[in-house]
């Protein structure tokens, strides 16, 4: 096992975000998992679909909630070498959003392509 690790077995990981932020702790927890996963030099993908697209909506302001606005942290992912961010086009459209509403650079792909991409992963974490 150790040899395999030393040899650098790289797996394809995908973190799938389906929930809006703040109502539950899922979005923040996944974001922290993504940041930690960066330390393991794996092939990390992050997907936003369904209400998950709201996690990267521009203009979030949580001051009145007394909660931390963690949306700026998605912009730090690039510095963690996590650059494979995917957003599902249908999910945006269903919610009246476009790519211009998003606060990070992402690749917008169709639902069918998202499904295909998920199928290529070794590990998928959905929340």
């Amino acid at each position: 096992m150790e040899e395999e690790y030393e040899g650098g077995i790289v797996k394809k990981f995908m973190f799938v975000n389906r929930k809006a932020p703040y109502g539950t702790v899922y979005a923040l927890e996944v974001l922290e998992m993504v940041l930690i996963s960066a330390a393991f030099d794996q092939d990390v993908h992050v997907a936003f679909l369904d209400d998950g697209v709201f996690q990267i909506k521009k203009g979030q302001d949580t001051k009145d909630l007394g909660m931390k606005n963690f949306s700026p942290t998605y912009r730090a992912l690039e510095g963690y070498d996590i650059e494979k961010l995917f957003v599902e086009r249908e999910s945006l459209e269903e919610r009246g959003l476009t790519e211009d509403d998003l606060l990070v650079d992402v690749e917008v792909i169709s639902r069918a392509d998202m499904a295909k991409l998920m199928g290529e992963m070794d590990v998928v974490m959905t929340a």
Binding site: V16, R18, M118, M121, D122, V123, V124, T126, A127
Partner: peptide, 8 residues
């Protein structure tokens, strides 16, 4: 199956 994906 090679992967398990839990839809929460």
């Amino acid at each position: 199956n090679s992967t398990v994906q839990a839809w929460l």
